[in-house]
């Protein structure tokens, strides 16, 4: 297990490094002073001013050196400042991450739990009404774009509120503005706001997860050791809970890690649909404003979290599978 963990950690390092490089390069090619440059160059003596500006921003140095400087500052915990509002990128991220985290965690937990339950049940009850119904919905939601489902749920929520005559579903923002409530009141408000966006992500994730779990379970159910368990006279229910489930849960662990990146993409879209002030909006704004430091910092934060999540799922897999544990 130690060797396995070390190996996984070692592999994470180049991937993490690659992530910083991509985060930097994707954005570094942009010219943050494009507008000033055009203006200044039209002035007499503008070229000098441009050069001075470039030097002050470090743009006169070669790309690789700039990467080195950026990496150095990164290691000191400095991701630069936003060119739009002058705030430190780290503090912008610190505000946005917890908001998004709520959504991501809720979506992951519920889609995995329900996905496993639905997938296992439909594998065990193959070709029954339950299986066929879940298959139908899985196909339906698997074909749905996140942005459309989000907008539909938002529309339905608003219509429901209108019909009911009271606001039951919150459709805008991650929490009520200027909310004056105690700890429990705040969380109740947050849960009210998270319901529809989380449901959007859960339904879509659930579609894929349950299908994946179903086929993993079917594979296991056809394996020789399940037959052995039945030959021992183990009751059907115990064959499933004790022998099949444990083996069929292994692939879902890595699967969760692998789809985390897709989930981040879906979260960005969902946040935009429901007007959340989280990572999604921060990212969108930074792109539209050409706020280089924020975009770089955002990509880096997401990249690191994706790598870490995958490292965690890999390690968890190692813990669950004895074949890896003693590797």
């Amino acid at each position: 297990m130690l060797a396995y963990a070390t190996r996984k950690l070692l592999i994470s390092v180049p991937v993490l490094f690659l992530a910083t490089l991509v985060a930097f390069l994707l954005v570094a090619t942009v010219d943050p002073i494009a507008e000033q440059r055009v203006f200044l160059l039209s002035q007499p003596g503008g070229a000098e001013q441009v050069a001075r500006l470039e030097a002050s921003l470090g743009l006169d140095k070669p790309l690789l050196e700039r990467y080195g400087i950026w990496l150095g500052e990164l290691l000191r915990g400095d991701l630069g400042t936003s060119t739009e509002n002058g705030r430190a990128v780290t503090s912008l991220l610190a505000e946005a991450i917890p908001v998004t985290m709520r959504l991501v965690v809720a979506a992951t937990v519920f889609s995995v739990v329900f996905g496993v339950a639905v997938g296992v049940l439909s594998a065990v009850r193959k070709y029954t009404l339950f299986d066929n119904t879940t298959t139908f919905f899985a196909f339906l939601f698997f074909a749905m774009p996140v942005f459309w489902l989000g907008a539909v749920l938002k529309d339905l929520g608003i219509r429901f509120n209108d019909w009911w005559g009271r606001r039951i579903f919150f459709t805008i923002g991650e929490q009520s503005p200027r909310l004056d409530a105690d700890f429990w009141g705040t969380w109740a408000d947050r849960i009210g706001h998270i319901f529809l966006p989380a449901l959007t992500l859960i339904l879509i994730q659930l579609a894929a997860t349950s299908r994946f779990q179903r086929s993993a379970m079917l594979d296991v159910l056809e394996s020789d050791y399940i037959r052995t368990a039945r030959a021992k006279g183990v009751p059907q229910r115990k064959v499933i809970t004790r022998h099949a489930l444990r083996n069929a849960l292994l692939p879902i662990v890595s699967y969760t890690g692998l789809t985390f990146g897709t989930l981040i993409g879906g979260t960005v879209v969902t946040e935009v649909v429901f007007n959340w002030q989280g990572m999604g909006q921060l990212f969108l704004d930074s792109l539209l404003d050409g706020d280089v430091a924020v975009t770089q910092g955002w990509l880096l934060a997401v990249g690191v979290s994706v790598v870490l999540v995958n490292l965690c799922t890999d390690l968890l897999y190692g813990l669950l599978d004895p074949r890896v544990r003693y590797d």
């Binding site: 991509v22 994707l26 954005v27 890690g257 990146g261 792109l287 994706v306 790598v307």
Partner: peptide, 14 residues
Amino acid sequence: ILPLLPVLMVLATR
């Protein structure tokens, strides 16, 4: 494991 959508968005602006 790459979050495809954000990366494509950045690429699009570039």
